[in-house]
């Protein structure tokens, strides 16, 4: 029997990492095991025996990759892939034990703060574009570009609010 890779396109926003983890676990229950993540969020699954894999997503963009992956590997987390700063790990579920890569609130908040920093940096060119819109856009294209930039800006602000809310929720626990 030939094993065929299953490709799925599914979109998760940056603040939906836990929903994504849960979805990947459900897929593993059905015998679809993540083998690769492609841009933008195309998931490749290897069909196999149904298994209960716990997936965890970490966000890191400034690290020594070798040390980082070694540490996760040593503690039982298999690295499945990476997509724009998000690192995907999995480990077979164990009864009576909750598997977490972040074991306290402070460090879990740290992950979302790194995400916020990245979004903040991304916002700079967007801001620059808005300030210089009159010079940059050819006449007639203005309204379309303006609309696009405005939409992007709204999305950014919304993403930042969602992540801030997540941090606040974590602080309350």
């Amino acid at each position: 029997m030939e094993n065929k890779t299953i490709r799925k396109f599914k979109w998760f926003w940056a603040w939906q990492d836990e929903a994504e983890e849960a979805w990947l676990r459900e897929m593993s229950n059905e015998g679809c095991h993540l083998s690769r993540i492609g841009f933008p969020t195309i998931y490749e699954f290897e069909p196999g025996e149904p298994n209960d894999f716990v997936y965890r997503l970490d966000y890191q963009w400034k690290m020594e990759k070798e040390d980082y992956l070694q540490l996760f590997g040593d503690s039982g987390w298999e690295n499945v892939g990476e997509m724009s700063g998000w690192h995907y790990f999995r480990q077979a579920a164990q009864t009576g034990e909750e598997l977490e890569i972040y074991t306290d609130t402070e460090s879990k908040i740290g992950k979302y703060q790194r995400l916020l920093t990245f979004l903040g940096i991304l916002m700079l060119p967007l801001f620059f574009t808005i300030m210089n819109l009159n010079n940059l856009a050819p006449y007639g294209w203005m309204s379309i570009i303006q609309l696009f930039v405005a939409l992007l800006l709204v999305l950014y602000v919304y993403a930042i609010i969602r992540i801030l809310l997540r941090i606040r929720q974590l602080k309350r626990i």
Binding site: D58, M63, Q70, L71, D74, Y102, T103, S107, K108, G110
Partner: peptide
């Protein structure tokens, strides 16, 4: 090394504290 720290912490804290790799990597940095 990192994993050694994880094992030792679990042992000396009588399993009251477990340090995951994400938490440990951040703390080390």
């Amino acid at each position: 090394h990192g994993y050694g720290v994880m094992q030792k912490v679990e042992q000396i804290s009588q399993e009251t504290v477990k340090v995951g790799p994400g938490t440990l990597y951040g703390a080390f940095s």
